[in-house]
Amino acid sequence: MSNISPNTIPNTGKFSWIKYLKDRPLWVDLALIAMAVACYFLFPYSLAFVTRVLIVMIFVLSLDLVLGYAGVATLGHAALFGTGAYAAGLFALHATASPILGLLVGACAASVVAFVSGLLLMRAHGLTVLMLSIAFAEVLQEISNQAGSITGGADGLAGFIMNPILGIFEFDFIGQTGFWYVLAVLIAVFIFLKMVVASPFGLAARGIHQSVVRMRAIGTGVYWKLVAIYTLSGAIAGIAGALSAQITELVSPEVFATSFSAEVVIMLILGGMGRLYGAIIGTALFMVVHHTAASVDPFNWLFVIGGLVLVVVFFVPAGLLALPAEIKRRMGRPT
């Protein structure tokens, strides 16, 4: 669990944003953005799917903060995604259908839920955290199922139509505006998280992951730090949920599903946790494999997903991004 690569930890005492950004080549980021844009032109008829992948990327990034950086394993992250989705949907239905305000509302609602559940979750360890986080998501799912008069129950929350973004860009039927909107939010979230993980706050999260005892010894309030990380992660998960509500203009209780929480964990591990790029790569790969396998053979695609998960856990436990280093290690040390 502690094999986090130290490649982005600055070793100077004083932290400088300018130096940080200067030290890092931007070509990887530009290439990723170029690939996203290329998808827009290559798959004009699958824009809904491409947009969905981008939304899930934001969600997996939020999970990376908790799981990859702070090392807290949860299987109930969909609780935060779903809260953001319902909050944004209800806000659009009853207050105003402004997309940007909706994102803020989704982020706030999910971070409140994250804070409250975090107070309980961050006290526990291991299996108990897994179970508690699942329990939270299940309770929220059941509430959204039962409170039919507010949430639309099992049929889902529908009937809201989003206003144009910033009053200018109208949502269209094939989802072109939606794509650019989600891509812009993803880039903003990514830049924000890059700064967060390089900040003292992000370093503290890694420190807790590597050794709780030592972090306590140097005077960090571990519990409150974890709650803060979880709350921040909740805000970002809430943004992802809000985006999903706004793009599909429908929210169903399925947003809280435990299988969704498990899938995003798989995506993160697949790409490599504790790395922001890992979240991006893992999500893209998993969702494309899932999508292709499910459309090629709708009955037996679980074989592919199950096999993929086992191969990753057994052979590249640190994720695909660690693959070059892993190959080097195996080649370098003949057995």
Partner: peptide
């Protein structure tokens, strides 16, 4: 020998394979 999280994932993978086998 795996860490907790890897165990969770590996056994989810096994679950998927069991489901897919019975499904088939």
């Amino acid at each position: 020998k795996f860490s907790e999280l890897q165990q969770v994932l590996a056994t989810i993978g096994i679950t998927f394979l069991m489901i897919a086998s019975v499904n088939l």
